Amino acid sequence: MEAKLGEFDLIWRFFKAGSESMAQTQTDQVLLGIGDDCALLQPDAAQNLAVTSDMLVEGRHFFAGANPEWLGHKALAVNLSDLAAMGAKPVGFTLALALPDANADWLAQFSQGLFRFAQQWQCPLIGGDTTQGPLTICITALGHVPAGAAIKRSGAKVGDDIWVSGTLGDARLALGALRNEWSLSPSGLEAVLPRMHQPEPRIALGLQLRGVASSALDVSDGLLGDLRHILKASQVNAEVLIDQLPTSPTLAEQTESLRRQCAANGGDDYELCFTAPAGKRMEVESLSTTLLPLTRIGSITFTSNGTEPTLMLRDANGNPLAAADSMQLRQSFDHFKSS
C-alpha cells in the first residue's frame, strides 16, 4: 500500500518535476520558479506585467468527479484567456490547490493535463500552495505586453465594429444536456463537450489584436453580459444582430430560442469579443483568414453620457427584439445570483 502523501511530498512529486521539465522557459523573465518562498521575475523595462486570477470550485464550476486531466487543462486555460483579452503573452503561473485528500491517481492525471497545456504555451508553474479542503483550484497567471499596448475594456468608440472570435454557445449547450435541460444526440453531445471541458484561449489572436482592437474581453459569463462590461467601461451604447452570432453546426440545428439563448448568454465560451474602428475592418478580416473565423456582430452607436449603457438587440431582419425576448437574452451568469 502506497504511503500517504504529505503536502511537500505532493508538491515535489507532482508539480516540482513538471515545473523543472519546463526549465528552458525560465529565461530572462523567470529568474526563480517553484521551490523557494517566492518566484522571482524580471520583466523587461519596456513591458507591462499583466496579472489575472481565477478560481474553480467543485460543484460550482465543474461537476463532482470531473475528469482531472481536463480540469488541469481548463484551470490554466481560463486564466490564459484573460491574458489573451489584453494582448498579453503568458510568462508563468502559480497554483493554489485545496484537496479533500492527496489522491495520487487524481494528482497524476491533473498535473498531466496542467503541464501539457502549460508546455503548449511555454508558461511554467512558478509557485503556489496546497492544503486540505473542498476541491478548489486557484491559478494566478502572469503575462507581459509592450508598455501602452494592453487592450483594455475602456477603449471602445462610437462607430467601432463589434467582433467575436470562433463560435459561441457550445459549452452552455453541453451543460444543459448534462443537466437534462434539453436533449442532444450522442454525436451532438460528443461534438460540443470539448468546448465545455477543454477550452482553447485565443492567445495568438490577442497578440495580433494589439494596435487593431480598441477594446476587448474574453467571453466567460455570456456574450451579452460580458459585452456590457465594455459598454460601461467605455461609456458607450451598442447594437447587436442577435442572429448573426456565430454558432457551431450542432447549435445551429437547435430551435431558434435555444440557439439564441446559448449563443447570447451561455458561459464558458472563452472566445474574444472586441471592438475595432471600421477603418481596421480589412485587418480584422485578414486575421479571420489566417488565424480563426472572426464575425462582425454589431456596432458601437452612441456615447452613454454617464448614464447606464443601452444594448439594442436586433433580429435577422434588423428589427428590434421584443422586450421580453431581449430581457431574457441579457441575463449572464453571476456567481452570487445564478444557481
Rank of each mutant, 00 (worst) to 15 (best):
G113C: 11
A102W: 15
L114I: 08
N103R: 12
S111F: 08
G72K: 07
L97E: 06
A84D: 08
L80S: 04
A108P: 02
A98H: 10
G87K: 13
K89N: 11
A75I: 05
G72F: 05
W106F: 14
L114P: 07
A98C: 04
D105C: 04
T94S: 11
L76P: 01
V91N: 07
V91D: 06
L97H: 15
K89F: 03
G92H: 00
R116F: 10
A102I: 09
A98Q: 12
A102R: 15
P90A: 07
A102L: 11
A75N: 12
L99F: 02
A96L: 06
W106K: 04
V78M: 04
Q109W: 03
M86H: 12
T94W: 01
P90Q: 05
V91S: 13
F115E: 00
F110R: 09
D101T: 12
L83V: 03
T94C: 11
A108F: 14
A108D: 14
D105Q: 13
A85P: 05
K74Y: 03
S81G: 14
K74G: 00
L95A: 06
S111A: 15
M86S: 11
A98N: 09
N79F: 01
A98T: 04
A77Y: 13
H73Y: 10
H73C: 05
A104E: 15
P100R: 01
A75S: 13
T94H: 02
V78P: 06
A84L: 08
K74D: 02
A98Y: 05
N79V: 01
L83D: 00
Q112T: 15
N103L: 08
G92K: 00
D105L: 10
A85H: 11
N103T: 12
A85G: 13
P100Q: 03
A108T: 14
F93H: 12
A102K: 14
V91C: 10
T94R: 04
V91Y: 09
A108N: 11
S81I: 03
R116K: 14
F115K: 00
L80H: 03
F110D: 05
G72W: 09
Q112G: 10
W106L: 12
H73T: 09
F110V: 08
K74M: 05
H73N: 11
R116A: 15
T94K: 04
L107H: 02
G72A: 08
L107I: 02
A96F: 06
S111G: 12
G87H: 10
N79P: 00
S111N: 09
L114C: 10
L95R: 04
Q109T: 03
L107G: 00
G87L: 14
F115R: 01
N79K: 00
A84S: 13
R116N: 14
N79W: 01
F115P: 00
L114G: 10
M86E: 10
W106Q: 05
F93T: 08
L83K: 03
K89E: 12
T94P: 03
L107D: 02
K74R: 15
P90E: 06
G113K: 13
F115D: 02
V91P: 03
F110C: 06
N79T: 04
S81M: 04
W106R: 06
F110P: 07
A96T: 12
A98K: 09
A108W: 10
Q112S: 14
H73D: 08
